[in-house]
Design a protein around this nucleic acid. Structure first.
Lengths: 156, 156
DNA sequence: CTTAGTGCAAACCGTTTGCAAATGC
DNA sequence: GCATTTGCAAACGGTTTGCACTAAG
């Protein structure tokens, strides 16, 4: 299963006349072993743990390549940092983002996707990708808020 | 009509125990006279034209206040810069963003809005705002691309 | 007269770049 | 051998902050 992603990567390198290096192979391998969303720093420290000689710059540059060949998907969250997730043959989804605790909830809605197609067709716009994020307070944080409120009232 | 926005602003200042200053009044006034999307730099130079003594920092800080009281809406575009638009009693819309020329096409879709409500309700998520952006190539740039392609072929 | 706001410069932070040395092809 | 990649350090660009000074309430 992960073989396939490695193949995609190597074919992309060949197609673009980029070189296959031990660093790039390592970074891909580490990336494929992550779950969910990782920042470039996260990835860097994971890579560093396996080979301390690898530089930050190389991680960045490799992430860019991973994006280009569709292996990584980049999403920006509420604090302005970018997070990456494995995107190869992963079902597309968008995000609810809790601005309090940073929680990420994935959602997918067939109808919204279809409506988007309609919209782009209407404007003769050739869509490449989209970013649909809903910011707010997650269920847990709402509960915590209510509990805090209660405590405040009873202590008066 | 713009009176109303000024009132909203002054009431927000009072409510938050912030002070009304000539700079803040000026920045709001300049902002209300812009059309469409402006960057903080744009706004800064417009403000500067009316009072060269105003600093960048103050424009930033005031934009933050304008966001807080719902007068300005901040959207991030493809190059990572933030653009601001007058959001007071303006009908909500989202954006198609041309990654080639930077063109912004506004769209609004009632059904998508409704589906979003359904989704947040399902996750008991309290939505504050959303950002729905579709990136791709606008009709004009597609035309230009095709024309360039044609020229390339015929010159062979 | 007390508190908040201003403008400046410096700090910040994630990202990008210039470059000499190292590596892949 | 030639071109690309690497790691480092320095640059970048938009934003934020510390601070002495100024102005609002």
């Amino acid at each position: 299963m992960e073989r396939e992603e490695i193949k995609v990567f190597h074919e992309h390198l060949k197609r673009e006349r980029l070189k296959r290096t031990t660093q790039r192979d390592l970074i891909l391998d580490v990336f494929l072993n992550t779950e969910g969303h990782v920042s470039s720093e996260d990835l860097y420290s994971l890579v560093k743990a396996r080979d301390p000689s690898v530089g930050f710059t190389t991680v960045y540059r490799t992430l860019k390549i991973l994006k280009e060949c569709g292996l990584a998907r980049e999403t920006e969250f509420h604090d302005g940092r970018m997070l990456y997730e494995n995107d190869y043959k992963h079902t597309h989804h968008d995000h609810l983002i809790c601005t309090q605790c940073g929680a990420l909830i994935e959602f997918y809605n067939e109808q919204i996707e279809r409506l988007q197609d309609e919209i782009t067709r209407h404007y003769r716009f050739k869509p490449a990708h989209h970013s649909h994020r809903i910011f707010g307070i997650c269920a847990d944080c709402q509960k915590a808020e209510k509990a805090a409120e209660k405590a405040r009232v009873s202590s008066r």
